[in-house]
Design a protein around this nucleic acid. Structure first.
Lengths: 141, 141
DNA sequence: ATTAGTGCAAACACTTTGCACGGGT
DNA sequence: ACCCGTGCAAAGTGTTTGCACTAAT
């Protein structure tokens, strides 16, 4: 990990390493705040600015992606394999989606003369967990 | 227009009518601030809260859609025909995109057991206008 | 008359920045 | 030794709310 960072001209600070470890281990698509809270557990002196700066840096190196699926905050994803996302408007969780459409989309480099750099397919609704919870609540009445 | 509003139990205030007129006449996918600035021209006493409240109301009645394609702010679209969007990261303009993928997407009501309510396909990159501008700037060097 | 909607201002929440200190190279 | 990165705090930006007044039904 130190090697990869240095190769890109970045310093391998313990804070950065922790952040990268966390991001590559989770599938929760955390917000900056989420990352901050998690790292602060094992690294109580870390500041939000450091987390924020690191996220920007990693975004610029292309090591993480910023998702705008959550209308309330930016979410981050270190899984760079082509996939889409489902956002639950109840619990705010973001799920990975692997589906057939991806095959069509990745070919597009230009549309209506616009230069396409990225394509995001976002599904929004109620996730399987929340769907079930709602069902249980209703039967309680 | 008054009739449609009343039918939904909404009062047809002049402010609302102006906002709806503007939204249905533009393809610019304005932000709340954009709407406010535009309406304020002809309606100097209008407050931002009124614009904001109206946008929420229209979103709840399903008359407008909230786009999360612009990472910096929410954008609104009154064009309810099925279509997608392209976001230019240079000029921040949002363009409508009508393409083939739409046909596949609109059939999906459930994915991975999640209940899908909406599908958004967002393209991001540099639009045709900005692409050309950049080209001109480069040749000036 | 009733009740929703407006306008003003303040509060929020998330994001971004400036700067002095400290640690990685 | 150099300079990037950290930590702290403050500022910025867009979003949301409370409340008294006004207007639409």
């Amino acid at each position: 990990m130190k090697r990869e960072l240095n190769k890109k001209g970045l310093k391998a600070t313990p804070q950065r390493i922790e952040i990268i470890k966390f991001l590559s281990s989770t599938k929760s698509h955390p917000s900056a705040e989420d990352v901050y809270k998690f790292i602060k557990e094992k690294f109580p002196t870390i500041s939000f600015a450091t987390v924020y700066n690191t996220l920007i840096t990693l975004k610029n190196t292309g090591d993480i992606k910023e998702l705008s699926i959550d209308p309330e905050r930016k979410r981050f994803d270190m899984d760079l394999t082509p996939h889409d996302h489902f956002f639950c408007r109840k619990c705010k969780r973001v799920y990975d989606i692997y589906d057939l459409l991806r095959g069509y989309k990745i070919k597009i480099e230009e549309i209506d003369e616009h230069q396409v750099e990225e394509i995001s397919l976002y599904y929004t609704g109620v996730c399987r967990d929340c769907k079930n919870k709602i069902g249980k609540e209703v039967t309680k009445i």
